[in-house]
Design a protein around this nucleic acid. Structure first.
Length: 429
RNA sequence: GUGGGUGUAGCUCAGUUGGCAGAGCGCCAGAUUGUGGUUCUGGAUGUCGUGGGUUCAAAUCCCAUCACUCACCCCA
């Protein structure tokens, strides 16, 4: 027990991996339905990419990146993937063939934070990015898609909260009135928020300190400072969601921490996840593509925390998944003699798409039977000297106890027909 | 980076005023030396996180340290 997995990381063992696979499969299914294509970008990128995209003054960039140097270049393990997807979009000139493209990604991200419930140093996100459009209906599509994914998996108990920061004009106006309000109440603010007035006023809205909360909540609300165009655009999203039957609420004080967000922002909050209750969050980033040297096009997307999603699944008793290793037949040996023949039989069965298993622990016949039962094998064949000599054997149905005669030559045929015919009454799904 | 909680068998955890380290589950074996589940019987497994201190004696008290965990910060 000398070396352990690094703090904030964890192993996904086979029993648990089936659940992860189920989640990923559900995401792919839903996303493909919505016309999103998978993109896989490097796990590490030039540190400059993240610093300039996410924001120099964000915690992520200031203290949470895993940075390493190789030669002249300094790299960072990706703390999120939006910057990478945008980089790829520009690098491959995707806008020149088809300006509007929809992507999704699934993979690990890295942030050197102190771990706690629902937060890890290597964590996994499922995210989407729709690049090349400023259509509010696209935001509605993203939100609906995420809601559909939760529905597909059977996860409930979350609320969708949205807000808009407005375009530059609205945001500028709001920044002014908000700063003014905070400056007037400066003395009552926490130290952090006082600094935020200068650094990034909007983040003061996120503060959890009771006193700060009271001050911000009693102050101006973004929703009251939107231009007509911004208001209209925001309403298009909320109306579309209502039309889609996606329950949501508006919170005029919701903001997001990453610098590239503009306009619409939203969060899916789940009860029962502990303090880190945002299971999915996203919004618009209409300037990022142009800022990174690409065309001036709008973009929107979200990221979903897989660890948190899986926590919610388990919480909702929807965390079970069928074990893909379950053998369909176990060939039990009596004594060591038949093992070579069994090895050949097992291979033959597998090559005919029958999941067959044999003993590799030199265990007793009884122990092998017990193992077959525990593994959930619906059929078992016991092979000893008698069978080797006669070439005849019996295939035992573990549910009914019924035994069907076969030979070494016909076992594969008998099994395949048995397996496909009455589908042993294991519950599926 | 800051604060709280917890470290005892593979897992979940008991362990009294300091006195031989335990239970449940799981695992292994046996109950007609070729057949599973249920049941019964038996069995194995410990750096009591680590290092030091107090004591005749420490899982237990003290100090340090590490790990895990929850929360703050921030975020998915």
């Amino acid at each position: 027990m000398a070396i352990k997995a690094p703090r904030g990381t964890f192993d996904i063992l086979p029993d648990r991996a089936t659940l992860w696979n189920r989640v990923e499969a559900a995401a792919r299914k839903v996303f493909h339905l919505y016309g999103y294509g998978e993109i896989r970008t490097p796990i590490f990128e030039s540190v400059k990419l993240f610093a300039s995209s996410i924001g120099e003054t964000t915690d992520i960039v200031e203290k949470e990146m895993y940075i390493f140097q190789k030669g002249r270049e300094t790299y960072a393990l990706r703390p999120e993937a939006t910057a990478s997807v945008v980089r790829a979009y520009i690098e491959h000139n995707l806008h020149k063939t088809r300006a509007f493209q929809k992507f999704y990604y699934i993979g690990p991200m890295f942030r050197a934070e102190r771990p706690q419930a629902g937060r890890f140093r290597q964590f996994h996100q499922i995210g989407v990015e729709a690049i090349g459009s400023a259509d509010p209906l696209l935001d509605a599509e993203c939100i609906t898609m995420a809601a559909d994914l939760f529905g597909e998996l059977g996860v409930g108990g979350f609320t969708i909260t949205l807000n808009t920061l407005g375009t530059d004009e609205s945001r500028g106006r709001y920044r002014e009135v908000l700063s003014l309000h905070l400056r007037q109440n400066r003395d009552a603010l926490c130290e952090n928020c006082r600094a935020r007035i200068e650094r990034n006023v909007f983040r003061a809205l996120d503060c959890k300190v009771e006193g700060c909360r009271r001050i911000t909540r009693s102050g101006p609300n973004v929703q009251d400072h939107l231009t007509d165009a911004d208001r209209e655009s925001f309403e298009k999203v909320t109306n579309a969601l209502t039309g889609a039957g996606v329950a949501h609420e508006v919170d005029g004080f919701l903001v997001r921490g990453l610098d590239y967000y503009t306009g619409l922002v939203y969060e899916f909050l789940h009860g029962g996840l502990g303090a880190q209750n945002a299971i999915c969050a996203g919004g618009r980033y209409d300037h990022l593509v142009a800022d990174r040297g690409g065309p001036d096009v709008g973009a929107t997307g979200f990221a979903l925390g897989m660890e948190r999603l899986i926590m919610a699944l388990v919480d909702a008793q929807r965390g079970e998944a069928k074990d893909p290793r379950t053998p369909q037949v176990m060939l039990v040996n009596v004594g060591d003699e038949p093992r070579t023949r069994i090895f050949q039989l097992v291979l033959e069965l597998r090559r005919r798409n029958v999941a067959a298993e044999m003993d590799h622990e030199a265990r007793s016949t009884k122990a092998q039977m017990r193992a077959a039962n525990r593994l959930g094998a619906p059929f078992v064949a016991v092979i000893g000297e008698d069978e080797l000599e006669s070439g005849r054997l019996k295939i035992k149905n573990m549910h009914t106890g019924e035994e069907t005669p076969a030979t070494f030559d016909t076992i594969a045929d008998v099994l395949t027909s048995k397996l496909k015919a009455p589908a042993p009454k294991h519950s599926e799904s």
